[in-house]
């Protein structure tokens, strides 16, 4: 328990020290929310909410606000977790090789991801409420929270395979654009085809649109987001487990056997 507490405290402090991400969040979210009415025409937009099949009519600036906020929070969370994971990778290997228990370390990482996602979603929801009254504010938070989780865990996965920060940011930027664009009613008011619901941002976008504009709030998109989060997190966890699988402790032991016997083996 103490191992978990120490690691969780330091992981949260580490995320909070990413001042660029904090600054971007603090500034971009209110700027976008306040600027949306000055950017989009006050016209109504009819679009089909795929999760319910119903056609909704909404003000263009409200749809633009949701689209923009999702774009900001998903990019920031991916940047935050990608940057932290790349930074911590070799250090975590050294720490676990020294004997730090891996389960509390993983739980601490999960805690910091969930906490950061919850806070980012809360901050964005509060600013939205300052200028607009979405129909289901709690669900708006949930949609933003799941967007943070999906892209937060994507950042963790990308940190495993990409060599540098620049490569990571380019991949995150391109992926998020291609993912979010077809989900927006502004460019795709009558979505069709099987591929849209399979994209990572489908669930979060549908949840946020329903939360802001629809009379009912479907749960299936939330499940889709959680499935993406679970799958991506599982990849990151497996990679962490494999990469930190080293010998620990005292006593006489033998390691680094031939390639035909890949696992370390104690001799007594």
């Amino acid at each position: 328990m103490r191992a978990y507490r120490i690691a969780a405290r330091y992981h949260l402090a580490e995320l909070a020290k990413n001042t660029l991400a904090a600054l971007l969040l603090a500034v971009l979210i209110p700027v976008w929310i306040l600027a949306a009415p000055q950017i989009f025409a006050a016209a109504s937009l009819a679009f089909r909410l795929r999760a319910t099949g119903r056609t909704l009519t909404a003000s263009t600036d409200h749809v633009g606000m949701i689209h923009g906020c999702l774009g900001v929070v998903m990019l920031l969370m991916a940047f935050l977790t990608f940057s932290a994971a790349r930074q911590a990778g070799p250090f975590d290997r050294r720490l676990t090789a020294a004997g730090y228990p891996r389960t509390p370390l993983l739980l601490a990482k999960a805690t910091s991801l969930l906490s950061a996602a919850a806070l980012v979603a809360l901050y964005t929801t509060v600013w939205t409420l300052a200028v607009w009254s979405p129909r289901h504010p709690g669900f708006l938070w949930l949609g933003l929270f799941t967007a943070c989780l999906v892209y937060g865990s994507l950042g963790l996965v990308l940190a495993l395979f990409l060599p540098g920060e620049l490569e990571g940011m380019v991949v995150i930027f391109v992926t998020s654009n291609l993912d979010l664009l077809p989900q927006s009613p502004l460019v795709n008011p009558d979505p069709h085809g099987f591929l849209g619901p399979l994209l990572p941002m489908y669930g979060s976008t549908q949840t946020c649109l329903a939360a802001g504009l629809a009379p009912t709030t479907p749960l299936r998109p939330v499940a889709a987001s959680l499935t993406w989060t679970a799958a991506l997190t599982l990849v990151a966890l497996l990679a962490f487990w494999i990469r930190t699988r080293e010998r620990q402790g005292a006593g006489a032991w033998t390691h680094a056997l031939s390639a035909r016997a890949p696992r370390p083996r104690r001799t007594r």
């Binding site: 290997r93 090789a97 006489a252 680094a256 031939s258 390639a259």
Partner: peptide, 12 residues
């Protein structure tokens, strides 16, 4: 133990 050799044994 940080790097796996192609062949060989280390005992500590």
């Amino acid at each position: 133990g940080d790097l796996r050799p192609d062949q060989g044994t280390v005992t500590v």
